[in-house]
Nucleic acid binder design. Sequence first.
DNA 1: CTTGTCGCTTGATTTGGATCAAACGCCCGA
DNA 2: TCGGGCGTTTGATCCAAATCAAGCGACAAG
Lengths: 248, 248
Amino acid sequence: MLNTSSVQPLSLERLRTACSTCGLRELCLPVGLSQPEMDRLDDLIHLRRTTKKGQSIYRAGDRFDAIYAVRSGFFKTTVLLEDGRDQVTGFYMGGELIGMDGIGTELHTCDSIALEDSEVCVIPFSRLEDLSREVQALQHHFHKVMSREIVRDHGVMMLLGSMRAEERLAAFLVNLSQRFTARGYSPSEFYLRMTREEIGSYLGLKLETVSRVFSRFQDEGLVSVQQKHIRIIDIPSLKQVMSHQQPC
Amino acid sequence: MLNTSSVQPLSLERLRTACSTCGLRELCLPVGLSQPEMDRLDDLIHLRRTTKKGQSIYRAGDRFDAIYAVRSGFFKTTVLLEDGRDQVTGFYMGGELIGMDGIGTELHTCDSIALEDSEVCVIPFSRLEDLSREVQALQHHFHKVMSREIVRDHGVMMLLGSMRAEERLAAFLVNLSQRFTARGYSPSEFYLRMTREEIGSYLGLKLETVSRVFSRFQDEGLVSVQQKHIRIIDIPSLKQVMSHQQPC
DNA sequence: CTTGTCGCTTGATTTGGATCAAACGCCCGA
DNA sequence: TCGGGCGTTTGATCCAAATCAAGCGACAAG
């Protein structure tokens, strides 16, 4: 199937899209770089790709040659089993990097799909490796990013392996809240870009269970839920639920 | 608590322990390095550590400054929740690298515990970064190792999120079998170094369930189980169970 | 050899979340 | 404005795995 997401070179728009002027630079790959170093990083990020809701930046089996920084929008990644079952392995928002699953085998191992119209910066991987041999700060930060992905995955394993449905959803909401906060959005009010089914897949639950737990949280006054619009009313209590501590 | 595992510098033993002469070099960090490059890697691996069964190489919260290559023996890593629950996030055998969880925050985020008397090579991380800025093959291979860890974690997420108990245990056995095979051991006969409880924690099951599924597999003639001694009788069928396909 | 401990197995019962089923309501295109 | 479809909610029932409980067996220390 043809991938129809558009690809555009940067030219005059260069300044606008350069890392140095990007609002996400404090969260993304350029963290800790000096101005000249950041300019060198800009040199290798020649492409952006806009991706419509539902389209992918890559699919499992595609050749790996770049990683992608989310510039705007929202993505999920999913792995697929032969028998048709699939599993959402992550949700990604502005400043986060996608595609590192492909480094190990030179092939991508999951699909990355936009949950709303989105834009990513294309970072050619071999050029990134070249530059990070010259720029220590870049090398080190890239290692940190990969390491954090591993730690995040451990968190999900913990969630899936030893938490109950309510704890999982509470942890999910608290995590989203923190990530929105880091991006300057409200910690307590946001739109979910994913369906109940996608949340369920990520959390190892069925969509009905996700829906029921949302309703229960609403009844208990922890959150207000209207379709995809979430308002977190009582973050401390949500954190308690997450940690399994009953409030006396 | 004092960490009592012994630390020893390499001197005369150097040759014996050098990557170049290590039986695991085709699985471990030196993959793809030329002889001179491997010599340079040897230069920074000055320490080995022997670790008795039950001891840790590091604990969650410990300062991160090295990663560790398993030279002999067997390890588990576990993450701990405030409320006391814990989760085994991985099992590691010869040639595999432990400790990359610590890069992101400069602190380790899990415990790594020997399941039998073991030995690891200590790889000081900042020196590894220095060298991998000079040796492209090392840089690239290290990135591959981290990427594969991420992909492995996705596999576990799939397992925990959408597979049934029998499928999980089948996948676990098939995975162990493949890793033993890659190390020159029998694909079909091995000793488990971990308890039923540790397997259960890794697979998101209780130890009773693990035990019951082992018994069921034995009744069905797929494996022979005697305590920790496992003989896989019918790998193809195990793979079928894993993929959820009933044999007609 | 004996004894104690720890890990494992097996049985009976419970339960959290899955499954099956129906209806609602938001959004979008005609 | 009016349908149609998809995503969501809610209820009734079922079931896989957890929990509770007992006893077994291997191994290590004395």
